[in-house]
């Protein structure tokens, strides 16, 4: 009886320690998270007709070190909590950083990105809820930068930080 409870106790202690270390690493260094939806297609979750959605889901490596200084560059893929619902996380590409002038697609507006904000858009503009409807996003809402696709194995690759051709302005 004594050895049994001893074993349980040490197991509980070990799993607690492992959990603490895992939480710290995923908060401070990097974590892996699944991507839902098609707003970043074809970069993430390209549409396939052969597999059900559950199996074609991409998993990305979220790097958290960028949160120490909040420095980002154009074309980074970032995850942030939605300004309308803080529990919902969105993943989009940064198009504009503070001080930039951004041409809003499908309208003649040109918006200046305010200090401490960024302009984000999904790669699949037909199916994406982003700065076109939400407006500029405070940088403080960003909770990580996606750097690699880590799952499924055939899609393992580095995510390039690029700006879509259609968004390059002449000025």
């Amino acid at each position: 009886m004594g050895t049994y409870s001893n074993f349980l106790w040490s197991l509980a202690k070990k799993s607690l320690t492992a959990g603490l270390i895992a939480v710290t690493i995923s908060d401070r260094l990097a974590s892996i998270s699944p991507v839902h939806g098609y707003s970043m297609s074809p970069t993430l979750n390209p549409k396939t007709n052969t597999l059900p959605e559950l199996f074609s889901r991409d998993y990305v490596l979220m790097e958290k070190l960028c949160l120490q200084r909040y420095r980002f560059s154009h074309g980074d893929v970032v995850a942030f909590s939605s300004p309308e619902n803080y529990k919902q996380k969105l993943i989009k590409r940064i198009i504009g950083l503070p001080g930039d002038w951004v041409a809003v697609p499908h309208s003649y507006d040109v918006v200046r990105v305010p200090e401490g904000h960024c302009w984000v858009e999904g790669d699949n503009s037909a199916n994406s809820k982003d700065s076109r409807s939400l407006g500029p996003i405070p940088l403080g809402l960003i909770c990580g930068r996606a750097t690699h696709i880590v799952w499924p194995p055939r899609r393992i690759s580095k995510l390039e930080s690029r700006i879509p051709q259609s968004r390059l302005s002449s000025s």
């Binding site: 200084r69 909040y70 305010p114 200090e115 401490g116 904000h117 405070p138 940088l139 403080g140 960003i142």
Partner: peptide, 8 residues
């Protein structure tokens, strides 16, 4: 609150 003007 994290400042919207300067996230640091």
């Amino acid at each position: 609150v994290r400042s919207p003007i300067d996230p640091n």
